[in-house]
Simulated scan of single mutants.
Amino acid sequence: MHLRVLGSAAGGGFPQWNCNCPNCDGLRLGRIQARARTQSSIAVSANGQDWLLINASPDVLAQIRETPALQPARAVRDSGIAAVLLMDAQIDHVTGLLMLREHQGPLRLLATREVLSDIGQGFPVTRILSHYCGVQIHEIASDASTFFAPGLPELPMQAVALCSKPPPYSPFRGAPRPGDNIGLVLHNPTTGARAFYAPGLGEITPELQEIMAGCDLVLVDGTFWSADEMQAMGLSRKSAADMGHLPQSGPGGMLEHLQRLPAGTRKLLIHINNTNPILVEDSPERALLDSLGIEVAHDGMDLQF
């Protein structure tokens, strides 16, 4: 099973266009050892030709340019993207759908009822696309039942509801619903291997810990290093929890949960905010991750499971 990291940064990318934090300023001026990143998205394929795009970031056109497998190859107008699945309705995960408006025929779109309600009303992406290529909607449940994306019969998946928050524009921002944000379990039916993907994750329950422990590859929320990261820099009054993210450090943080996974589980962080010190490759925080066997995803990374 092929998994390609198209983008590995949180909203705004890295460096963020209007940010002069030490990371963004340091990368622009060449003062830090780090690499630029686009906004988070992955693509998965069983055969290397037909791909499921998971989240459509505003950077999707640049990501397609960097990924030959997603480019046209079989017809004058064509794409290796067979379908698109949305993990949530965040701006940095759905805006790229508008960039795919020239798609030949309706775009196959998979999402939960809750996500579809937000992108049909609060940010009416699906209504906008109805005036262009159109959208073929496939509603998915977040109850861990197995489903398949149209055109991808060799890729069984399960969606599980996560504790996080819908986007700020959602009327349910202050009252999250199951299905506003999902984690995705991807299965390789040939080998039995499984991968878990969750770029937005506010809490890890015992049930979710068990799901992660049963996977060979875990690719999870790496947004913030500390709970008060944005507050300490004077960039926001909100904590990581206020934004629906579990920080890596501190009691009950992501690192504690990842260390509880089996030794053979490959562990990666994705959706990394531009302020996070793990972006700096020779930082103490990055050294700690290395010592724990936890990787930091980067654009263009190819993973097999």
Rank of each mutant, 00 (worst) to 15 (best):
L129V: 03
L100F: 14
Q121I: 12
L85R: 05
V135I: 12
I119K: 03
E114V: 15
M99L: 15
L152K: 04
G134R: 02
E139Q: 08
R113G: 11
A83P: 11
Q90H: 13
S145K: 01
L85S: 04
E114N: 15
L129D: 01
S145P: 00
I81K: 04
A141Q: 05
G120S: 14
V125H: 03
M99F: 13
H93T: 09
L109S: 08
V115C: 08
H103T: 11
P106D: 13
L97I: 13
F147I: 03
C133S: 03
S117D: 15
A89M: 08
D143S: 01
L110R: 12
T112G: 06
F148S: 02
G151Y: 06
D92G: 08
G122P: 10
D143T: 02
A149N: 04
F123P: 07
A141W: 00
I119R: 03
P153Y: 05
T126M: 00
D92E: 12
C133R: 02
G120N: 13
G134C: 02
D92T: 14
E139K: 02
R108N: 15
T112E: 05
L109H: 08
A111V: 13
I81Y: 06
V94P: 02
P150V: 05
G80Q: 09
H103I: 10
A89N: 10
H103P: 09
L110H: 14
D118V: 12
I91K: 07
A141V: 05
S117L: 12
R101M: 11
R108H: 15
G96A: 11
L107T: 13
R127D: 00
A111M: 12
G105T: 13
E139S: 09
G134E: 01
T95D: 09
F123K: 05
I128S: 01
I81E: 03
D143E: 02
F148Y: 06
F148I: 05
A149D: 03
G96R: 05
G80F: 10
L107W: 10
R108V: 14
L129Y: 01
Q121A: 13
G96Q: 06
Y132T: 01
L109V: 10
L98Y: 08
R101F: 09
H93K: 04
V94T: 09
L110T: 13
S142L: 00
H138G: 06
R127V: 01
Q136W: 04
T112A: 08
I91H: 06
A149P: 04
I128M: 00
S145E: 00
L116V: 11
V135S: 00
L100D: 13
P124D: 04
A111P: 13
V135P: 03
S130L: 00
Q136R: 06
T112F: 03
P124E: 03
L98C: 12
A83D: 07
H138N: 08
A82I: 08
H138C: 07
L107M: 11
P153H: 04
Q90V: 09
